[in-house]
Design a protein around this nucleic acid. Structure first.
Length: 720
RNA sequence: GGCCGCUUGGCUCAGUUGGUUAGAGCGCCUCGUUCACAUCGAGGAGGCCACUGGUUCGAGUCCAGUAGCGGCCACCA
């Protein structure tokens, strides 16, 4: 380290240097406290193609804070890093990049395309993990995992086979959310709803039909097989049970009038055309009433073969043509503008077409029951607690999870077919003529295994699995409670027989200074790397933690970060002053003196009132900070430290100590030096999880004249 | 439609199990540079803690209700 203290904390010069020293010294490995109690966090794996954003900075800060704290307590702290292959997202990115080069994936074929994605991954995949290092994340990089690497792929096949053998996975033709743009089925929670104005058309199928129906999607009516009304609706009571032959623009159908309680008699005409193949609710009605299901829209978002001259038309073209026909035939009674929700794909934003398709599903009910119980019994604790209610509600209303995706990038479904035969297993069956399922699994399937697949499961004898599973804390954003957290709990309980973690800590989303969502179009996006360059990692970290409570969104702007940059400088400068005075150095040049601190044993008899007061306050601070971190109150603990360090230690005690240091009583002066160093060094340890870099930089200076201090602050001990 | 959160000084937010004159940061005002830090120090102005009612010796904190804002889930065919 330097022999001199500069006047301000020069973060950019030293942060990466410190990080490299830590990493190469092996301080991030749990082995440095191997006999300690395990404290384990599995990182929420960022998309492999991702670029660091403020959300990553949020989780990395909170998780690193916990990991560093527990490491200081002497626990075997392990933070497992890794990245996610992110099926659709990555495939789309690479596909677009290839298209720019004039390469079409359907021309080069599956094998070549997947190879291209791997090359892309090798080139860009390391970026995000490098960026996590800039945040000070003390992950054990030797244990880094990728959801598509060998071990994890094996875990995926094992899990699939296990669930299939227990009848918890099945294949079937059901209505699914189909994204024509992505060309794949997606899960229920991957569908978003967008409010929009829509036209509600009132019309009859043909002149002979007795009931007027209302719909926003006339073209789907070509696939109707029933009209549903509320059983209590007097207008239609006598028609229920009757069947009519109809013909719409050349398409012939049989329509049965059915009664169903789901129908709101006040909406539209109180009569709904039932389209089993293209509406989730109608599909269910069709099952209940034994209706025929006719598919009129295909996977490309075009009208299917079954609709005569409409076949091959795009959905919107078909709508226009049909409306024109209805007008001409005088069947259209009116058109009303209403507010409607459009279902869109959360990935590409394209409109979702519900349609029947042959897919693989996970049977969720039995898994959900166990997952509910684990939280209800307190085996898993969710912070903040109110999210337990959201969690229960989701599990209570869960539907089977569609896990097959019509993509190329991902875990290929471990199922092989040969004629009528089917083989499900980790390996291809021997013998000729077997063909593997073309589809891959939903990205979240492998994510659901993350806390144990990263530790060696299914090998239950793996050393890491034995030592570090179950993990301790799952820290992530509340926005992926369903996508990820709930599914990890379900899979953990089913596959390992244990809850995968003890505590779920959900952080809020980062918003801008005016509390607006960060978005590129608003131009209010904070780039963590810019902030780090400008104000230092420590300032960013404190800014993200202090003033934020779990589950609550947080407003972060430059002025806040700037305030904490001043705080990191205060840490630097107070330490500079103490070091120079204690060693008899030169306050002007910042050059340290020769005096050393032999030991930190304080002579109680020499304590002045000022000494007693700061020592008392220090004790209280240690107690309060420890308690609050243990209770996951990181913001409150951080504020305490800030207040105590700046206003009690710096503004008051350092000022008071100046007189004592210059006193004629040399013993008093010597004692004061010890108190300064002891309190400063212990406070630095407490600040270290929040501000790892400046505290270490200072520590290295203190160490020069205080041999009692450990080699690095990372491996020192939390004060008692 | 169901559920949840927020509403505290100009702005962004804390406020731990209800307890003395309600806090912080930023902003603002006054003063200060004799040598840790102007990325600083000393001091100050500024709040009927959304509203109404209740419980209590005592409520920002608990209960009921109202209003505004935000979110999640379901969904209107």
């Amino acid at each position: 380290m330097n022999k001199t203290f500069s006047k301000t904390w020069q973060h950019s010069e030293i942060e990466s240097e410190l990080y490299q020293k830590w990493e190469s010294a092996g301080y991030f490995k749990p082995e440095i406290n191997f006999d300690g109690k395990p404290f384990v966090i599995a990182i929420p794996p960022p998309n492999v193609t991702g670029k660091l954003h403020i959300g990553h900075a949020m989780f990395a800060t909170l998780e690193d804070l916990m990991i560093r704290y527990h490491r200081l307590l002497g626990d075997a702290a392990l933070w497992i890093p890794g990245t996610d292959h992110a099926g659709i997202a990555t495939q789309t990115v690479v596909d677009k990049a290839l298209q720019k080069k004039g390469i079409r994936k359907n021309e080069i074929g599956r094998e070549k395309f997947v190879q291209e994605v791997w090359e892309w991954k090798d080139e860009y995949g390391g970026k995000i993990t490098e960026q996590l290092r800039a945040l000070g994340a003390s992950c054990d990089w030797n244990r880094e995992r990728f959801t598509l690497d060998g071990g994890l792929s094996n875990a995926v096949r094992e899990a699939f086979t296990h669930l299939y053998n227990k009848d918890l996975i099945y294949r079937g033709e059901y209505i699914v959310n189909w994204c024509p743009k992505c060309g794949t089925a997606i899960a229920d929670d991957e569908v978003e709803h967008q409010e929009q104005k829509a036209k509600l058309y009132y019309f009859k199928y043909d002149k002979n039909f007795p009931i007027t129906i209302a719909t926003t999607r006339p073209e789907t009516k070509l696939g109707d097989t029933a009209v549903a009304v509320n059983p209590g609706d007097d207008r239609y009571r006598e028609l229920v049970g009757k069947e009519f032959d109809i013909e719409i623009d050349g398409v012939k159908r049989k329509i049965k009038i059915i009664a169903n309680r789901a129908i709101d008699s006040k909406f539209g005409t109180g009569a709904v055309g039932v389209t089993p193949s293209h509406s989730m609710i109608d599909w269910k009605m069709a099952e209940d009433h034994g209706l025929e299901k006719i598919k009129v829209i295909d996977e490309h978002g075009r009208m299917a073969e079954s609709v005569g001259e409409y076949a091959g038309m795009k959905v919107l073209e078909a709508r226009e043509k049909l409306v024109k026909f209805l007008k001409k035939e005088d069947l259209l009674e009116k058109v009303q503008e209403i507010d409607n929700n459009l279902s869109v794909c959360y990935r590409c934003g394209g409109a979702i077409e519900p349609l029947p398709s042959l897919q693989w599903f996970v049977k969720m009910k039995p898994l959900a029951e166990k997952a509910k119980e684990a939280v209800k019994s307190g085996e898993i604790k969710i912070i903040p607690k109110r999210f337990e209610k959201v969690y229960f509600h989701w599990l209570d209303n869960i539907r089977d999870w569609c896990i097959s995706r019509q993509l190329w990038w991902g875990h290929r479904i471990p199922v092989w077919y040969k004629g009528e035969e089917i083989h499900v297993g980790k390996e291809a069956p021997s013998g000729e003529g077997w063909k593997q399922d073309e589809d891959v699994l939903d990205t979240w399937f492998s994510s659901a295994l993350w806390p144990f697949s990263t530790l060696g499961w299914p090998d239950e004898k793996a050393a890491d699995y034995k030592k570090f599973y179950p993990t301790t804390v799952m820290e992530t954003g509340y926005d992926i409670l369903f996508f990820w957290v709930a599914r990890m709990i379900m899979m953990g309980l089913e596959l390992t027989g244990e809850a995968p973690f003890e505590t779920v800590y959900l952080h809020g989303l980062v918003r801008d200074e005016q509390n607006r969502k960060m978005s590129k179009s608003l131009g209010n996006v904070l780039d963590p790397l810019d902030i780090i360059a400008k104000y230092g990692t420590d300032a960013l970290r404190i800014g993200l933690v202090v003033g934020s409570t779990p589950g609550q969104d947080i407003a972060v702007g430059e002025s806040k970060i700037k305030g904490f940059r001043n705080f990191t400088n205060k840490i630097w400068n107070a330490s500079r002053f103490v070091s120079l005075r204690v060693t008899g150095g030169d306050l002007q040049s910042g050059e340290l003196g020769e005096s050393k601190i032999g030991d930190l044993k304080i002579d109680e008899k020499l304590l002045t009132d000022a000494d007693k007061k700061i020592i008392e306050e220090h004790k209280e601070t240690v107690k309060s900070v420890t308690e609050n971190i243990n209770k996951f109150k990181f913001s409150f603990a951080g504020e305490k430290l800030y207040e105590y360090f700046w206003h009690s230690f710096c503004d008051r005690y350092i000022e008071e100590s100046k007189e004592q240091l210059e006193a004629d009583n040399l013993e008093l002066a010597a004692n004061t030096k010890k108190i300064l160093i002891k309190i400063l060094s212990e406070t630095l340890v407490m600040l270290h999880p929040y501000a790892p870099f400046v505290t270490e930089a200072v520590w290295q200076e203190l160490k020069v004249f205080t041999p009692e201090l450990s080699e690095s602050i990372i491996i020192s001990r939390w004060p008692e």
